[in-house]
């Protein structure tokens, strides 16, 4: 099994995705097998290769800066777990 240099609890904090102890152990074992494949990539010489972030021959997609129709505020709030006065409502984020 490949040695994965991953502190899974630290990564779970970064992802804002808490894992149970059982999940953390199970995932770590599964990642270890996947990283056997991923280790193969380290064998390739890619020093002269550019990175492909996206495959289509497009750069910036500009348009005129004009106001176009968009979702009504009420419609945008229809799925909100909580709202008040036309805003999304969450627990306070600043003390």
């Amino acid at each position: 099994m490949a040695d994965v240099p991953m502190d899974i609890n630290q990564v779970s904090l970064l992802a804002r995705l808490p894992l149970t102890e059982e999940e953390a152990q199970r995932f770590a074992g599964q990642f270890s097998r996947l990283f056997e494949f991923i280790a193969d990539l380290q064998r390739l010489d890619v020093s002269a290769v550019h990175a492909t972030a996206q495959v289509i021959p497009l750069h910036n997609a500009f348009r005129e800066d004009e106001i176009r129709p968009s979702l009504d505020r009420e419609v945008a709030l229809e799925n909100a777990p909580d709202s008040e006065g036309g805003y999304f409502k969450t627990p306070r984020i600043l003390d």
Partner: peptide, 8 residues
Amino acid sequence: RAQKVRTL
């Protein structure tokens, strides 16, 4: 590195 291999 994965993005570079994607190019290859």
